[in-house]
Design a protein around this nucleic acid. Structure first.
Lengths: 194, 194
DNA sequence: GCGTTACATTGACCTAGGATAAGAAAGGAG
DNA sequence: CTCCTTTCTTATCCTAGGTCAATGTAACGC
């Protein structure tokens, strides 16, 4: 249940076969059924989840009880509440399995060991953080400047596969609009071109 | 023109007096007049600017020519387009001096030298990145879930001093609303409590 | 001082998207 | 196959906030 993660470490973090094996020897993997929670808002997030197979989503719940999807995590993605894990704060997020999902559990100790084994991992980690920032920044930009339609088009361009795997109301929630609005947007798009 | 930055390094990055002096010996500082640009969108961002004195803003310009403030940078803040600097891409941002401003210029070489001199700096850098992520995440959450009024209240709670130093239309732009709307929000708030 | 430019407020109107409600369609569980 | 739940669509109405335009006001150069 670690194959994808091991391949990922070799390719992206530039670790050798031996380093990967030694690092991942003690890792735990877990399966979650569709609808199960990996983390509840308010708990401290002790793990970063690497998705071997399946699909996760992280989301917040506002005062009115409405959910807002923060991130989708398909195969080979990391899902976590970074702030909670790093600063040991209560998490704002919940994390739920959208499909039956197999994940690898990475704790703080794993990060330490990885950095000790090969300093390339530290570089890789910084790159991942920078990439995360770039992604969040882009999303803020869209929320500030784009209409619902533009945001949806951007979404399907960025995550074409997810458009099929994820219920529309979750996509609407990610975009910051209601499912009804998304339905209207899609109708308009269908009418005009495709 | 490096006093604040040197003090910052000692306190936040836990560097010794000697390390700070050696690191900062070759740094350049520059002054910009109110309204001057430190970076134009489309250029590659070669520096992170540490604000010694004054106030910067970074912003994007959308297809319709509207500006959207991404960040304000008062004294002791870093302002940069991290993505552009790190990935050597054209910047989405422009950076402008809101007041007459003195900055310290930090380039990629500075980061390297700092990490070599003391590994505590690497830790500090990671912390700064994590903090940035936390901040962006919180903003996305607000944009997804909060009304203009709530976002404004959050802003004045977070940046009470900026409320006075920054023109209202820039605050409106940061919040993702028009100056007219912000004016109405303020009127409502004034009527109800204060 | 005066004129100019930038900023803030106000009012009248408009629109994107939210709220509510009610079908239609599509999965699962039995 | 049938029932039930979840998801998606559609229609009607509503509201937060945008747009446009006028007026007010403060700040600065000259």
């Amino acid at each position: 249940m670690l194959e994808n993660f091991q391949a990922y470490l070799k390719e992206k973090a530039k670790l050798s076969e031996a380093e990967v094996l030694s690092l991942t020897a003690t890792l735990t993997s877990r399966k979650f059924r569709k609808g199960e929670f990996l983390l509840h808002a308010g708990e401290i997030c002790h793990y970063t989840f690497f998705v071997e197979k399946g699909l996760l989503r992280s989301f917040t719940t506002d005062d009115a009880g409405k959910e807002h999807v923060i991130q989708f995590g398909p195969e080979n993605w990391f899902v976590s509440d970074r702030s909670s894990a790093y600063f040991h704060e209560a998490s704002d997020f919940s994390i739920e399995a959208v499909e039956d999902t197999a994940v690898v559990l990475l704790d703080a100790d794993f990060m330490l060991r990885a950095s000790e084994i090969n300093s390339a991992f530290t570089q890789f980690n910084e790159m991942a953080l920078q990439n995360h920032i770039r992604h969040l920044q882009k999303r803020i930009n869209l929320l500030l400047s784009a209409t619902a339609e533009k945001r949806y088009l951007d979404f399907i361009r960025l995550y074409p596969d997810l458009t099929l795997r994820v219920p529309q109301w979750m996509i609407a929630s990610y975009l910051g609009i209601t499912p009804e609005s998304l339905s209207r947007v899609r109708k308009e798009l269908a009418k005009n071109h495709l």
